[in-house]
Nucleic acid binder design. Structure first.
Lengths: 350, 350
DNA sequence: ATCGATACTGCATTCGAATGCAAATGTCAC
DNA sequence: GTGACATTTGCATTCGAATGCAGTATCGAT
């Protein structure tokens, strides 16, 4: 004995085939109003226990699922976060992406992915982000100050991953302490002639690590450091090793600002320059990416605490989504020195 | 001299601060109807040139952007495709992901990413996919027959990437010809004692490659092949190499069904078993992933034509989105044999 | 001047769910 | 039985853009 139905749409008598069921369909079949159905799927909405059960039963029977688009349109909450990542620059990228994606899923947030290639039109990507009304954005790609400013204008919370901007919160791995540990590790092993494989001058982390390494070396009185710039790729590390060798002759140690370049450098040193690692040359990297720990490399590096960093990035973003006035914290994480066999270690005094 | 406005919403006199502009705002300021604004942003909609220009000018001035949610709700087209990928199983995954993402962006389609870990609840992911009314799905993850069937029920086009299902179109790299080439390459070099590092029995591509390799070997009269199963990870390749060595003693060649396992095997052979590659042992893989071409490995492998495969997957999906009756093609691509220094090559007869 | 064809333009409705408000119902005390 | 109060429930509106339909303007041909 269905109660009287007064909803406009409830008057249709049958459900067309092939259309996906809506809350009105559930309402009609269960003999309740559309609002009741809606309230069944909202947390702490006011709805009687008996009615709730009936509605849920009907919903399950006809396979009803709330339409995320309609929900988002009316509630102004999409439960979608955009992830902006530059593809390929870094070995470390797939890991970060997978972790961020997992952390977001845990919180029932969907991921709209923007994977940038070199020629990507970042402003076009931002345009899409605005159109889709995402709840927030995590960016591990370079954004100009003007671009970062747009986020504030559009009131879209932004968290930067291994980047900085004065106006936005960020999560980073401390380059200074990381490079200092690496340099100390190398100095302790008695190395004095250093080479540095840095990144493109416009890369934030690249420059930060470069400067941190140079500073740590300078502090120890090592001022004369051969440097060659790469672009974070394997090949560029390979080429940079050759360049260093040509320019500076015999070196004790090479510091690369990323694992992938360090790996390229190791291959160049061993295979082309006929150097044994670590006997003739020590090589260190940065990131602690998977391949760095493969047997052929066993790279001494600084492992970024990806799990903690992604946790923090997501937590910060969610906080700012929930409370727009939350402060724009900049969190710095300390990486762990992974000592591998790609660098000599200090001989303990017996 | 604005024309008379009769639109309901146009009567509000001022635009509240901080709200993002809607088509009504543009309409009000430009003195036209909301429909006119809408038509300005639709291709081949009927709208006068002068009016179009005026509207676009106003829209640009106030920074109007169509709301993708509202567009999707009414037009039943989200321009979003869900990408389902299992994270981490494969070195090759980040490349496929980046390529698919690039191909979709070129066609002005957004990507909703679902990166599956081992414990992921696939049915939960599908549930989210239905709720978000995506236009289509590309899956490079394992789906049960029942799950594939749901796509038909929900009328969501699906294209499988390196997987198969009778009911769905797919894009794959031919394991049979690939493994045959590898086997022929190894046989030509005079190898007779073979080891095989296969994948988990429930992996489709893994089994396909395994069976193809065994068949090619059997055809050449090699029936006795030592086999050890891995899980596609570096470590499992490493362990499998040890297992093969223990079980079968000296081998001429090891065929791994993925590059990552081949790399793990190479490291185990060289570093633990003290074998020279390719003098004492040839190793081949499959995929042609980036690290396979690093100097330390220079792996003989079959390179999947990622670019062509992702192109095809996206083209097939778009076709099926546009025309639901398009046939469910299964496209097979042939990989290219990359001959590296990880496997001996036939000595040419002088 | 009239008719028809063609190109614009606006009105009103639609997509599907959420929610403020008011009405209805239920509960309990006295 | 009455009043005070809390809990359910439904109505009507809202989010923002697309679109069928009908109406208007323009122009050329007759």
């Amino acid at each position: 004995m269905p109660k009287p139905q007064t909803n406009k749409k409830s008057t249709s008598t049958t459900m067309e085939q092939g259309r996906r069921p809506t809350s009105y369909d559930v309402a009609r079949i269960a003999g309740v109003s559309q609002s009741a159905v809606s309230r069944c799927f909202a947390p702490n909405a006011s709805i009687g226990a008996a009615k709730r059960e009936l509605i849920l039963k009907v919903a399950a029977e006809i396979g009803y699922r709330p339409n995320a688009l309609a929900q988002a349109l009316i509630s102004k909450r999409t439960n979608i976060v955009a992830l902006v990542i530059s593809a390929r620059t870094n070995l470390y990228y797939p890991e970060v992406l997978a972790e961020l994606s997992a952390r977001l899923n845990e919180r029932d947030i969907r991921v709209l992915l923007f994977s940038l290639s070199e020629e990507s039109d970042v402003d076009g990507v931002l345009d899409q982000i605005w159109r889709h009304s995402v709840d927030g954005v995590i960016s591990a790609a370079r954004l100009s100050a003007a671009q970062v400013a747009q986020f504030a204008e559009h009131r879209v919370p932004l968290v930067l991953y291994n980047r900085v901007a004065t106006a936005a919160p960020s999560v980073r791995c401390d380059s200074v302490s990381g490079e200092r540990h690496l340099v100390e590790h190398l100095l302790a092993a008695g190395h004095r002639r250093f080479g540095l494989i840095s990144g493109p001058a416009d890369s934030y982390v690249g420059e930060e690590r470069r400067n941190a390494a140079l500073a740590a070396l300078a502090q120890a009185g090592v001022g004369d450091v051969a440097e060659s710039r790469g672009d974070f790729s394997y090949d560029s590390g390979h080429r940079a090793m050759h360049a260093l060798h040509q320019a500076a002759g015999k070196l004790d140690a090479v510091i690369a600002v990323s694992d992938l370049m360090a790996i390229g450098a190791m291959d160049a040193a061993r295979r082309d320059l006929d150097l044994s690692i670590p006997e003739d040359l020590s090589v260190v990297g940065f990131d602690g990416a998977g391949p760095a720990r493969w047997g052929s490399y066993d790279l001494t590096s600084v492992r970024q605490p990806v799990r903690r960093m992604t946790d923090a990035a997501v937590a910060m973003l969610v906080e700012r989504i929930e409370d727009a006035t939350a402060p724009a914290e900049q969190r710095l994480f300390t990486g762990e020195l992974l000592s591998g066999s790609s660098a000599r270690i200090a001989v303990p005094v017996v």
